[in-house]
Design a protein around this nucleic acid. Structure first.
Lengths: 220, 220
DNA sequence: ATTTAAAGTTAGATAAACAAAACTTTTTAT
DNA sequence: ATAAAAAGTTTTGTTTATCTAACTTTAAAT
């Protein structure tokens, strides 16, 4: 049986290895992400390696082995199903769900997860636009482009966010940026990379930092 | 913030102090109930006393102080609401819910509990017939008589069970003994205290041990 | 009333998860 | 190519929750 802590390490390793172009994951970065010291990560990696959950050599890159990835998928599946449940059935807003889902994702009951999935109508995406892994651990395709990478003049749709923090989510909700919002990217300022956009008809300026954390797709 | 372990101790102390006529609760009994050694209970009590959750002196009786009782009530409320949720919304049977509820009862989110209560229509009893404490920690009245204490000839209704274990619940479900089942207590055998009963029309023998764990009320 | 049994406590140890400080390896910059 | 910086590891130590073994107190039995 895996502990909650182990599950959190595996999930973090998974998340940090997605969405990066070959850059290696090290103990410092993982420690920062988990809010623990690099020393703690070093010793935990020894344990996770013994259990054959991760691939790791001293001073080397950290990545998941098959079994570790399966556990990460299962935890992420639970996290995203619970987030969906909280929004759909419990009247939570998308900035309130992460913290509670961090707790609920560690509940151990296969039946509960299956029933949750059924109750929600087998959703494919969670309230942040992230895909929900299937019961077999398959993930149906991830996001690609963030708003900051798009060209001026494009008509876009918000399909997800890269950041789950309440403050970020509250900020963009204020701007009108929620899942399925339509955006016209009018122009980009050379000065600081901020963007002049039209969101659901309203004119707005958004910082590059915000744009980097919003996933979009083209409107055909 | 209280840990899950502390909450489990407070809940156990609460449960063991209900349903007993003045008999004092000691470390051995508590240890047995929690599945830990008496030594562990001794040291944990020191901590719970420091936090002013329990009243306790060396070699003396264990009981809850106001704050400890409030926490116990809150945990029991969550436990029973989750059990109700699992049966009402997730198609669990009453013998499957205890184990999962033991995990869910420690989730920390006021909003989640309130919404759960609302979603379920503010239930007064859980699937085992136990009363659900209100948000202010009030419990609306407990069970009184178990089936083994009733007189022969009486027409009774099952209102609850004293034991949550899967094996017990599966056994009595087999007998037809579920919440609201109607029972006619026909006679009691002097030999071993077992009972001759008619359950929903069917004739059955049930052991004294079983009868001690079924709460009943008179049908008026 | 004394012995024995039951109940309870204390002391010493362990495992999990963490941190600080000291040390080592790798990478970067000049 | 070497020094400095960054990244990573090891050692030592802490906290929480647990155990076993040894000891003490209280209750029961003769």
């Amino acid at each position: 049986m895996t502990t909650s802590t182990e599950e959190n390490y595996l999930k973090a390793i998974y998340n940090l290895n997605v969405d990066r172009d070959g850059k290696e994951l090290g103990t410092n970065e993982l420690a920062g992400h988990l809010g623990v010291s690099p020393a703690t990560v070093s010793s935990m990696l020894k344990k996770l390696k013994e259990k054959a959950f991760v691939s790791y050599e001293k001073y080397g890159a950290i990545s998941l082995l098959q079994e570790g990835e399966a556990i990460a998928h299962a935890v992420i599946r639970k996290h995203r199903l619970w987030e969906t449940f909280l929004v759909e059935k419990m009247d939570f807003t998308w900035d309130e769900i992460h913290e509670v889902a961090e707790q609920l994702e560690h509940i151990k009951s296969k039946k509960l997860v299956d029933q949750l999935d059924k109750l929600l109508g087998y959703p494919k995406f969670d309230p942040h636009g992230d895909p929900i892994p299937t019961a077999n651990g398959e993930i149906r395709g991830m996001h690609k482009t963030t708003l900051d990478q798009e060209l001026a003049g494009k008509q876009l749709k918000v399909v997800g966010v890269k950041n789950d923090s309440p403050t970020f989510l509250q900020h963009i909700t204020q701007l009108g940026l929620v899942i399925n919002s339509e955006i016209l990217l009018k122009s980009r300022l050379e000065f600081d990379g901020s963007l002049d956009v039209e969101i659901e008809g309203k004119d707005q300026m958004i910082s590059q930092k915000v744009a980097e954390n919003v996933y979009v797709s083209n409107i055909i």
